[in-house]
């Protein structure tokens, strides 16, 4: 499916979603609560079959914390981008997609480690690179006077 067809497919599953045709991929903005159900459909529906979760990137937009999922289908060779954001910076919570793609276990742990976004239903959510006393370094308001030297 090309970008427009994918957009139409998403429309057919849920009308309320915000769909943007990016310069490369179809970008869908999903509210956190709908994320898991949409992801499940994207993976399991035969017409799209997004069976390969390429990467999960956590992003600090300043006010919001967001997560971007790049999904690809190994059958149809098309890619879609799911974006979700939460404005809760203290206890941000999203649904885990580990059930759907096993690779999410590590990728979500990385996002949790670096941005502090908690994923519910994650089998083993722990810090990955850093120890538990560390802050969340990829947040824009992270300060570390000792380890970050600026000119």
């Amino acid at each position: 499916m090309n970008k427009i067809e994918l957009g139409e497919f998403i429309k057919s599953t849920d009308k309320d979603l915000e769909i943007k045709e990016g310069n490369q991929f179809t970008e869908v903005t999903v509210p956190p609560l709908k994320l898991f159900s949409l992801a499940k459909q994207l993976k399991e529906r035969e017409e799209v079959k997004f069976d390969f979760l390429v990467c999960i990137s956590g992003i600090d937009y300043g006010a919001d914390l967001g997560v971007v999922y790049h999904l690809r289908s190994t059958v149809y060779e098309h890619t879609i981008v799911l974006k979700t954001r939460t404005s809760d910076r203290v206890t941000p919570k999203l649904d885990s997609v580990t059930e759907l793609w096993a690779t999410a276990e590590f990728l979500e742990r990385e996002v949790y480690d670096l941005l502090g976004i908690k994923f519910t239903n994650h089998p083993d959510l722990r810090r990955l690179f850093l120890d538990s006393s560390w802050g969340f370094p990829l947040r824009k308001d992270y300060v570390d006077d000792i380890n970050i030297v600026t000119k």
Partner: peptide, 29 residues
């Protein structure tokens, strides 16, 4: 597969740059 994902806000440095490094993902298996 190494993926580079750049979010730019028009500045000379990236707003967010994400590397999907193959080894990290392969370690999960």
């Amino acid at each position: 597969e190494l993926d580079v994902f750049i979010i730019s806000d028009g500045n000379k440095n990236p707003f967010r740059l994400k590397f999907r490094s193959p080894n990290f993902v392969n370690l999960g298996v």
